[in-house]
Structures are given as structure tokens and as C-alpha cells.
């Protein structure tokens, strides 16, 4: 519970910080075409999942991009 409380506080702090710093730069919906370009997608999800699984089996620290993958007995 302590960790959850701390995380929520951090989330609020992060949100406020981002909002405070960025509300001046409004981007209208019709100006967002570039953000939806093909090149703005980092890569294929399946390959990135494979890549992260490979890193997690060779490096003792991993994660941070999302939650939810199961463990493995990788060597």
C-alpha cells in the first residue's frame, strides 16, 4: 500500500508538471497528421515483445515499458 500511495502521488506530480509546462502549445486535431505518420510508430509490437524477452533473459534488470508479461526460466 505504501508503494501504491507513493506511485499515485508521483503520478499527480508528473501530471501537474506536464500540464503546467505544456498547455501553452495547443495542437489542434487537424494539426496532428504528423503524429500519426508511419514513421512515428516505433516498431512492430511482436518484434519488440521478442526483443524485450531476449533482453530480460540476458540482463538482470528489465521492464518499465508496460506491465503484464509472465516470467521464464531462461538461461
Amino acid at each position: 500500500m505504501k508503494a501504491i500511495s507513493l506511485m499515485l502521488k508521483l503520478a499527480v506530480i508528473m501530471s501537474v508538471t506536464v500540464l503546467a509546462g505544456c498547455t501553452v502549445n495547443k495542437v489542434a486535431p487537424w494539426e496532428r497528421g504528423n503524429l500519426a505518420k508511419q514513421v512515428m510508430v516505433r516498431g512492430g509490437s511482436q518484434h519488440m515483445g521478442l526483443e524485450q524477452h531476449f533482453y530480460a533473459s540476458k540482463e538482470t534488470t528489465s521492464g518499465g515499458y508496460s506491465v503484464g508479461a509472465g516470467g521464464c526460466g531462461c538461461n
Binding site: 505518420k37 510508430v41 509490437s45 519488440m48 508479461a69
Partner: peptide, 30 residues
């Protein structure tokens, strides 16, 4: 981001569709 189905690229759709995969991140520009 506010994009419609019409103007979104097909490759974006492929990436977005697989966001539910465990261990795959919700990417900043998706």
C-alpha cells in the same frame, strides 16, 4: 492522439492492434 480511422496509417493500425500483447509497451506515438 486525436486521429481518426481514416487518416491513420495502416502500419499504425498493425502496431495499435497488438498493444494488448503483454510485455509490449503503450508507445508514445501510437
Amino acid at each position: 492522439v486525436a486521429v481518426t480511422k481514416k487518416n491513420a496509417d495502416r502500419l499504425s493500425a498493425f502496431a495499435t492492434a497488438a498493444l494488448a500483447l503483454p510485455g509490449v509497451s503503450a508507445l508514445a506515438a501510437d
